[in-house]
Amino acid sequence: MRKITIKILTIPTKFVTSGILLIIALFVYGIVGSHFIMGLNLIDSIYYSVITMATVGYGDYLPKTGIQKIFATTLALAGVALLAYVFNIILTNFQDKMSKYSKGVKKMKAIDNMDDYYILCGYGRVGKVVFEELTKRKQNVILFEKDEDMTENIEENNSVVVIHKDATEDDLISKLAGDKCRSVIISTGDDVTNLFIVLSIRESNPDAWIVSRASKEENHSRLRKAGADKIVSPELIGGKDLYFESTRPHILKITVRHSLDELYDEFKIISKHGCTLENIQYHLPGIETPLTRKINTMDIKDGKRFRDYLEENDEQKEAIENLYKLVNNTHSHIISGPDRATFIKLVDELKKHEEVLGINLTKKEVAKLTRENIK
């Protein structure tokens, strides 16, 4: 309780400095005026200045001339004004601290009432996207962002708590990253800051799941050693997206239907035309979002290795066959190639070996197609 009281009554340094300077200036004015106007010696000048500024006025030194009365009046009024200023600072500071303390208590109570939650550090360009994704999925979120202006539009409720503290200077984040925390997402744009937060959390929470942003690829290993479970580089992901956008005329999405036994023949055709199989999307009937498996190969040797692997591992082959049955053999290939002319030849040859359902179909079109397949 004593620590809380001291913290509440602590006055900001800038107000303390300005108050001290005003008191010194008025005190000097009182001493100089008492000596030259009132005709008092140094000790009596100090005494008279203090009792006049404090509006005590014992009456042992009375101003008699007009100039003495004006001096005494200005000294007394300035003393009253100064006392009012200091009192106002103390009262305003006390009210602000009490308000913040009250809000802090409410925030901690809201956190205590959460069954589980995500902790998000940083509400910049990347943090905003993460925050929107979490709230869209109705997840409980504790957001750490020291800049209050950045979060002024966030409406706090039982599922969203915003804490305006620097995560690198406060141990609260480490305390909250306990059993109820599903994940800590660190999204500040400074890798050094992210590294420090990871170290702080991991030191006291060895089981916490920590996902950190890394702006530079060379910092991945440092964050990993510090204790981050996952490292994401939005800049690198963005670069990959830019690459695909720049090559969009030479990216083909072909939706087909065939069995697992025909997979290798299909791969030979793709490799023959110098194209790269980027990934495969398996379409669950009527569902827009597919199951995606990254491939990223154009080497026929990879296809042979995969075929041989399935022949030698019956359980794995059965698992993939079950997947093909689940999607009714319907899936899409994302293929990159040298030019459009190559794609035309590729599609023509694939049509001779398997059922081609469509080219560059949207998710909705594929979902509609798969719904019709199960009727």
Rank of each mutant, 00 (worst) to 15 (best):
L21P: 02
D96W: 12
I254F: 05
M150S: 14
V161A: 01
N279T: 12
I320Y: 14
I374K: 13
K106V: 11
T55S: 12
P249L: 05
G286E: 03
V16I: 12
F94Q: 09
E245M: 13
G39P: 06
I24P: 00
I335V: 06
P234V: 01
E203W: 05
K180V: 06
G39A: 07
T188V: 09
D339C: 12
H35Y: 15
V192R: 13
E132W: 00
K216R: 15
D265L: 04
V184L: 02
I344V: 14
D116T: 15
F87V: 06
K253D: 11
G66Y: 00
L236I: 08
T5F: 15
Q316M: 11
K128Q: 11
I119Q: 08
Q316T: 08
V161E: 05
F306P: 09
L9T: 08
K375E: 15
R125H: 08
R137M: 04
T255R: 03
I300A: 15
N140I: 07
K3L: 11
V141W: 03
L9W: 07
L134Q: 02
F196A: 10
G66L: 08
G104H: 05
S259I: 12
N157A: 06
E318V: 10
A167I: 10
M53V: 09
Y264C: 04
M1W: 11
F36S: 14
L350W: 01
M298K: 15
E155H: 07
A54L: 11
L252E: 06
V129E: 05
F343A: 15
P285N: 10
M38C: 02
L143C: 02
Y58V: 12
H353W: 05
I210K: 00
N140K: 06
I119K: 12
I89F: 03
D60I: 14
C121K: 13
Y324S: 07
L62M: 10
K294A: 13
P234Y: 01
P285V: 11
T297D: 01
R307A: 08
N157D: 07
Y282G: 11
K325G: 06
A110P: 06
I37K: 02
N279L: 14
R307F: 08
E349P: 03
A54T: 13
S271T: 13
G337V: 04
K138D: 08
I37L: 05
T292R: 03
D229K: 11
I251Y: 11
S221H: 15
L176C: 09
E278Y: 14
L323H: 02
D190Y: 01
I335Y: 06
I197V: 02
L323W: 02
R224H: 13
I210Y: 01
L82N: 07
L82C: 03
E145G: 04
L176N: 01
Y324V: 04
Y243M: 13
P63V: 05
T151H: 04
K225Q: 15
G57Q: 05
T13G: 10
D207A: 07
V32E: 07
Y324I: 02
K64A: 13
L199D: 10
G303P: 04
T362D: 05
I185Q: 03
D339A: 08
E152R: 15
I89S: 00
E318H: 12
N360W: 06
I111Y: 06
K128A: 03
K128I: 09
N329A: 04
F196E: 12
D149E: 15
N157S: 07
K69G: 09
E148T: 13
R137F: 00
N140G: 00
D191T: 04
T289Q: 10
V141Y: 00
L77F: 14
